[in-house]
Amino acid sequence: MTEYKLVVVGAGGVGKSALTIQLIQNHFVDEYDPTIEDSYRKQVVIDGETCLLDILDTAGQEEYSAMRDQYMRTGEGFLCVFAINNTKSFEDIHHYREQIKRVKDSEDVPMVLVGNKCDLPSRTVDTKQAQDLARSYGIPFIETSAKTRQGVDDAFYTLVREIRKHKEKMSKDGKKKKKKSKTKCVIM
């Protein structure tokens, strides 16, 4: 069974824990209790493949930012979460993405942009803004509501699919490099 290491990042209060708990335990946590770091595991079937999701729910508070490099190193894919009623959390996505790329030393890291709290009427981040940002990053965008469960499975499952595509691409690139290195030079 394939294991996928997913990391949920975003500013404090955007609903990272609520999304994760909704996926794992099928219930909505409405009281806000700032996370330092929590880890969850769940076995699911995605596109006919049974897999184990190892999900790291991270601290959004700035005082825990020193811990970010460590979990970013171990993560295979990242859910970059903002709240649709919090423009600052949307603007912060850029910083999370840049930090992930720096730590992973790669421009090509599996990510999904997630606009959470889409059940709320007080939207300050337009869907088109988020779609445009995701398009500019070359990553999928999904709106979710941890409260109603809308888009929750889709967000995590899409990230797994992005990781699969990335692994497939990397193995193809690896095979191309191996083929090239088999060419021999004969000096007579």
Rank of each mutant, 00 (worst) to 15 (best):
2 T>S: 12
109 V>N: 03
108 D>T: 05
68 R>P: 01
56 L>I: 15
77 G>M: 11
90 F>N: 04
16 K>N: 04
95 H>T: 15
9 V>Y: 01
119 D>E: 07
100 I>M: 07
107 E>H: 07
136 S>T: 08
39 S>D: 06
8 V>E: 05
53 L>A: 09
120 L>C: 10
23 L>F: 11
151 G>E: 07
138 G>S: 09
112 V>I: 06
18 A>Y: 01
19 L>S: 14
142 I>P: 02
15 G>E: 02
177 K>V: 04
45 V>F: 09
3 E>Q: 12
155 A>G: 12
175 K>H: 15
24 I>C: 05
11 A>G: 10
133 L>C: 06
84 I>P: 15
36 I>S: 01
179 K>M: 14
157 Y>C: 10
161 R>H: 09
68 R>E: 02
162 E>W: 08
152 V>L: 11
173 D>M: 03
57 D>L: 00
83 A>S: 14
14 V>Y: 13
52 L>M: 12
24 I>D: 12
14 V>L: 10
149 R>D: 13
20 T>K: 00
81 V>A: 06
54 D>P: 03
91 E>P: 03
102 R>V: 07
40 Y>Q: 00
73 R>Q: 07
122 S>M: 08
75 G>L: 01
177 K>F: 04
186 V>T: 15
185 C>K: 15
82 F>H: 10
123 R>S: 12
164 R>D: 15
114 V>L: 09
111 M>G: 01
87 T>E: 12
162 E>Y: 11
180 K>V: 15
86 N>I: 02
119 D>N: 13
6 L>F: 06
36 I>D: 03
83 A>M: 07
47 D>W: 04
35 T>L: 00
165 K>T: 15
172 K>V: 11
34 P>Y: 05
6 L>I: 13
155 A>H: 12
100 I>P: 02
141 F>R: 06
114 V>S: 02
70 Q>H: 09
14 V>G: 12
47 D>L: 06
63 E>S: 04
141 F>Y: 15
26 N>D: 13
138 G>I: 03
129 Q>H: 04
4 Y>D: 08
144 T>S: 09
148 T>M: 05
155 A>K: 06
169 K>W: 03
125 V>D: 11
12 G>F: 07
48 G>C: 05
93 I>G: 04
139 I>P: 07
55 I>M: 05
130 A>I: 12
14 V>I: 12
21 I>T: 15
13 G>L: 10
159 L>M: 13
42 K>A: 08
106 S>W: 09
94 H>W: 13
98 E>G: 04
58 T>I: 00
68 R>T: 02
11 A>I: 13
32 Y>W: 09
135 R>Q: 07
72 M>K: 01
99 Q>T: 04
173 D>R: 12
37 E>I: 01
31 E>M: 14
92 D>G: 05
159 L>R: 02
92 D>H: 03
35 T>H: 00
99 Q>N: 15
9 V>G: 10
125 V>H: 13
100 I>G: 01
91 E>D: 08
177 K>T: 11
7 V>Y: 04
52 L>T: 12
95 H>S: 14
166 H>W: 11
23 L>G: 06
124 T>F: 08
120 L>Q: 06
75 G>F: 03
171 S>F: 06
62 E>K: 04
61 Q>D: 14
139 I>N: 04
119 D>R: 12
13 G>P: 15
39 S>G: 15
110 P>A: 04
73 R>I: 06
62 E>V: 03
110 P>L: 03
38 D>I: 00
108 D>G: 07
99 Q>W: 03
119 D>M: 13
156 F>R: 01
87 T>G: 06
100 I>F: 04
77 G>P: 03
134 A>I: 09
62 E>N: 04
95 H>R: 12
54 D>W: 02
162 E>R: 08
188 M>H: 15
51 C>I: 13
73 R>E: 03
169 K>C: 08
159 L>I: 05
50 T>V: 14
63 E>T: 05
29 V>D: 11
89 S>C: 15
32 Y>N: 02
111 M>N: 02
97 R>T: 13
43 Q>H: 09
167 K>C: 07
75 G>P: 02
73 R>K: 07
87 T>C: 05
155 A>N: 03
167 K>H: 10
76 E>L: 04
59 A>C: 03
53 L>Q: 09
58 T>E: 01
165 K>L: 12
187 I>N: 11
96 Y>T: 04
180 K>I: 06
57 D>V: 00
176 K>D: 13
8 V>P: 02
114 V>E: 01
45 V>E: 13
126 D>Q: 07
25 Q>H: 05
98 E>V: 02
77 G>V: 13
22 Q>N: 11
147 K>R: 09
92 D>E: 15
161 R>W: 13
125 V>S: 11
172 K>S: 11
11 A>D: 08
182 K>D: 15
76 E>G: 03
104 K>C: 12
102 R>N: 14
78 F>E: 00
106 S>Y: 13
132 D>I: 05
102 R>S: 06
81 V>P: 03
98 E>A: 04
97 R>C: 15
52 L>K: 14
176 K>Y: 14
163 I>A: 04
44 V>N: 14
168 E>I: 08
121 P>L: 08
180 K>C: 11
128 K>P: 05
63 E>F: 03
14 V>S: 09
103 V>N: 03
146 A>F: 01
101 K>D: 04
47 D>R: 10
121 P>N: 13
105 D>S: 11
137 Y>G: 12
123 R>E: 13
126 D>N: 09
127 T>G: 06
167 K>E: 09
41 R>I: 08
34 P>I: 03
114 V>M: 07
141 F>N: 13
132 D>V: 05
38 D>L: 00
8 V>K: 04
67 M>Y: 00
90 F>V: 12
132 D>M: 05
104 K>N: 15
168 E>R: 06
34 P>S: 03
51 C>G: 10
39 S>P: 00
93 I>M: 10
29 V>A: 08
